[in-house]
Every structure is written in C-alpha cells, then in structure tokens.
C-alpha cells in the first residue's frame, strides 16, 4: 500500500483506515444491491416494473403475494411446505445422528474405531453428484421416487456435521460427566439423550441451521427425485419458472416468488448471524 515514513505513521494509519472503509462500503453495496432491487420490484406491479426502474418500493406487495399464491400452474404454497418438511426433517436427523456418531467415537474404545473415524473423514469430500446415477436407480428400485425419503434419510450420515460435533465434544464434553452418569445408574443411551444432548445444544443450533439451509437451497438431487407437481420443492419451482416462457410472466409475481424463497433463511440469519459466523470459523480446519 502507501509508503509510511516514521513521522507520518499516524496519518498513514488513517489513510489505510479510510481505504479499507471505502473497499468495505463498495463490497457492502455489491452484496446488497441485488436484494435491494428484489425488494423494490417485489412490491411493484408488473406494469410499473416494465415502465422502468424506481429507487423506492411500491405498495403492490400484498397483491403480488396473492397473485402468486393463486397461480394454478405454480404450487408455491405447497412448495414452501414441501421445502419446510424436507429441510426440517433433514436438519433434525442430521444433528441427532451426527452427535450420536461423534459420541461413539469420542467416548468409547473399540476395535476399528480409528478406521471408522478415518473413513468418515475420507468420505467428507465425495460430492453427492458422483453417486447420483446409482442413487436414482436404487431409489427407483425401492419405489422411493416421488417421495421425500431419499432427500431426508441420507441426512443421518453427514460427515461434515459429524466432524463439527466431534470437535465440539473434544472441547466441551469431559469423559468424567459420562462416568458420573454411569455411577448414578444411567444406561448408555439414556446418558446420551439426557446428559450429552443438553451440553451439545450450541453445536446443535449452529449445525441445525446449516443443514436446514443446505437442504432448503438444494436443487440437484430433489430435481432428480421429485417429478410430481405437488411434491416439488422451491428450487425446482424456480427452475420451472425460469424455463417457462419468461416474457409472458407477471414480473411482480416472479420477484415475489424469489423473495419468498430466500426470506425465511434471511430472517433466521439476521437474528442469529453472530452464532452462525462463529460456527463457520469453528467448523473450519484447526490442527
């Protein structure tokens, strides 16, 4: 950056500070710009949108929402519900069973434990797409096409969530607590549910949000599994909207649809951003 002489150290610092604020401001605008247009146009009527851009929101939000909900070709309300069911169940299964798996590795000593641990770490980076071919054929044989099961059950085996839980247990779950519970006569499964789970609450919250969001946003696998209109999740409906004859659409409705798909996640994020960002850092690589 700029050259600093010893005497002008202070002003150089100020200059650096100003420069970083300018860059941060530009990035903020870049990040929020498209969402700003989204909010403005979701609240304006189609005729207003086609006349030109306005910097201020309109008052047409409710009408756009009603039009969207009453669209017979695009079951948006069902889509919201479907996305909610799939993402909710995935998040619940994923955090519970990942914690259980991590608990098995963390707390017990058994033959093959290290192999199991290494195996889970190894499969962490295998993309779901490379197994998709075998996956859809197998689901077809199980008669699970056009059901939510293929999207929900695999969440039981989530290596990344497992890894986070394991890290968290290493720092927050001393083995003495488990031993004390045993002396009190608690059985192993009871100990996990009654003693370990409450300790894991913060980790659960963060990972539940991440798993929920990942599932909510997922497009590739659901698009291969769900073909019936009333089972489709939001990303599939958006793809459908995109490939339909776009010019004939009521643009107010299109913007409203986009807004509806991202709003739930944005609201949760804004309420819990502090914990989510901490979670990102925690889940990252550490020795």
């Amino acid at each position: 950056m700029e050259k600093t002489k010893k005497k002008s150290g202070n002003s150089a610092l100020t200059a650096r500070r100003v420069f970083s604020y300018i860059i941060l401001a530009i990035l903020t605008v870049l990040c929020l710009f498209s969402f700003y247009i989204l909010i403005v146009n979701a609240t304006r009527a189609h005729s207003q949108i086609s006349k030109g851009f306005s910097a201020l929101p309109g008052s047409y939000a409710l009408r756009n929402f009603q039009n969207l909900m009453s669209d017979a070709n695009l079951p948006v309300f069902r889509g919201l519900l479907n996305s909610l069911i799939v993402a909710g169940c995935s998040a619940a299964l994923s955090v519970y069973f990942s914690a259980l798996t991590a608990y098995a590795i963390h707390c017990y000593d058994f033959k093959g434990k290290n192999i199991a641990f290494t195996f889970i770490l190894m499969i962490m980076t295998v993309p779901t797409q490379v197994t998709a071919l075998g996956f859809i054929n197998l689901m077809d044989k199980f008669h699970m096409m056009d059901t939510f099961w293929p999207l929900i059950i695999p969440s039981v085996a989530a290596p990344a969530v497992f890894f986070f839980m394991k890290q968290y247990m290493d720092s927050a779950l001393p083995i003495e607590i488990v031993e004390a519970a045993r002396i009190d006569g608690s059985n192993e499964f009871g100990t996990f549910n009654k003693i370990v789970l409450p300790i894991m609450k913060p980790a659960f919250a963060v990972q539940a949000i991440f798993t929920f969001v990942t599932s909510w946003n997922n497009y590739f696998t659901p698009a291969l599994i769900l073909k019936k209109n009333n089972l489709k999740t939001l990303p599939i409906l958006i793809a459908q909207l995109r490939s339909a004859d776009f010019l004939k659409f009521d643009m107010g409705k299109v913007y409203m649809m986009i807004l509806l798909s991202i709003l739930p996640v944005v609201i949760v994020y804004l309420c819990l951003s502090k914990y989510i960002i901490q979670g990102v850092a925690l889940g990252s690589v550490k020795g």
């Binding site: 069973f97 990942s98 259980l100 798996t101 608990y103 098995a104 590795i105 707390c107 017990y108 000593d109 058994f110 033959k111 434990k113 199991a116 889970i120 499969i123 295998v126 779901t128 490379v130 197994t131 998709a132 071919l133 075998g134 996956f135 054929n137 197998l138 293929p150 059950i153 695999p154 039981v156 085996a157 497992f162 083995i175 488990v178 031993e179 045993r182 192993e188 499964f189 996990f192």
Partner: peptide
C-alpha cells in the same frame, strides 16, 4: 481414559454406517 462399554460404540455407529452404505456406498 475411555470406558470399555465396547458394544455401545458399535451400536451408536450403526445408523451412520447403515445409511451411508445404502444411500451412498452402494450407489457409488
């Protein structure tokens, strides 16, 4: 200082490996 309740380690690992095998490994 792990407690040797070996059986439970396997029991708790079972759901993960069962689901992974059916929904990921066999398809792969």
């Amino acid at each position: 200082s792990c407690v040797s309740y070996t059986k439970w380690g396997y029991v708790f690992l079972l759901p993960f490996f069962l689901v992974y095998t059916i929904f990921n490994l066999i398809p792969l």
